[in-house]
């Protein structure tokens, strides 16, 4: 089982949309996928029409393996399950602060479903916190959506610095451009500069700024299911392919 986190230390960059569409596309490709909605706002759960979990409250996520497994819900799509969030997830930081070895707690909790899934996709809240650190420690790959703007450039820099300062392996970080508007000069210039700066670390796929992605809230479904031939759907499929390859390169994923 591999852990793939969708993370950004800046909000509104298309992180949840990425987690939802990526998890769905990986499942479509034949992998058994669990999407963990760690964001207390529960946007991922909303897109899949799944209600917040009522029983996985307080720190049960980290302590109660049975409850953790029981809270998992099948989505409407083959191979894809979801662990819905609830409001108590916003207290994860408090729980983790009170635990010893808090960095490895998340990985330990996910071990409960190790044999069920090929990939666990984590939809993370947008901040650098105890939970984020646990994600940095546990994830095999961290996909980071980056809007090609000056502000995002700065946050990405900060993230790399944080990894550097805290000895997290920077190789896990795989930034990609999100909400790209090719007609904007600023976007083009930023993309050129970041490509020069980050080189091979950057994923090739660009997720466009697209109406279909906005419409996910209306359809409450992944883009591929209602706009399969639109550029956004194709981009998520491309992102899936690229990340799947990287995950396999890590080597231990069982592919059916």
């Amino acid at each position: 089982m591999k852990i793939l986190a969708c993370y950004s230390n800046k909000g509104g960059v298309g992180k949840t949309a990425t987690a939802v569409n990526l998890a769905h596309a990986l499942a479509e490709s034949g992998l058994k996928v669990l999407l963990c909605d760690l964001d207390p706002q529960g946007a991922s759960s909303f897109y899949f029409r799944i209600k917040p979990s009522k029983k996985l409250i307080e720190d049960a996520f980290f302590h109660d393996e049975k409850r953790f497994v029981k809270a998992i819900r099948g989505s409407d799509y083959p191979n894809l399950d979801l662990l819905p969030s609830n409001m108590t997830f916003r207290d994860f930081d408090v729980f983790l602060s009170n635990m010893k070895k808090s960095d490895s707690r998340l990985k330990k909790a996910l071990r409960a479903v190790k044999s069920h899934y090929d990939v666990v996709v984590l939809d993370c809240p947008p901040n650098i916190s105890k939970l984020a650190e646990a994600v940095f420690a546990s994830a095999d790959i961290i996909a980071v959506p980056v809007i090609p703007s000056t502000l995002s450039e700065r946050t990405l820099e900060q993230l790399f610095e944080f990894f550097e300062d805290n000895d997290y392996p920077k190789g896990k970080l795989l930034p990609f451009f999100s909400m790209v508007q090719n007609n904007k000069k600023l976007h083009k210039e930023t993309m050129a500069r970041l490509t020069h700066l980050y080189g091979k670390r950057l994923l090739n796929t660009h997720i466009p700024f697209a109406a279909e992605i906005e419409k996910m809230g209306v359809h409450r479904a992944p883009v591929i299911t209602f706009a399969a031939y639109k550029p956004a759907a194709k981009a998520y499929w491309g992102l899936q392919k690229e990340l799947r390859k990287r995950l396999l390169r890590i080597g231990r994923t069982t592919v059916r």
Binding site: F48, R49, I50, K51, D76, R220
Partner: peptide, 10 residues
């Protein structure tokens, strides 16, 4: 057929 809940979730 699908059995749906009030969120239209199967």
């Amino acid at each position: 057929g699908s059995l749906l809940d009030d969120e239209q979730k199967t």
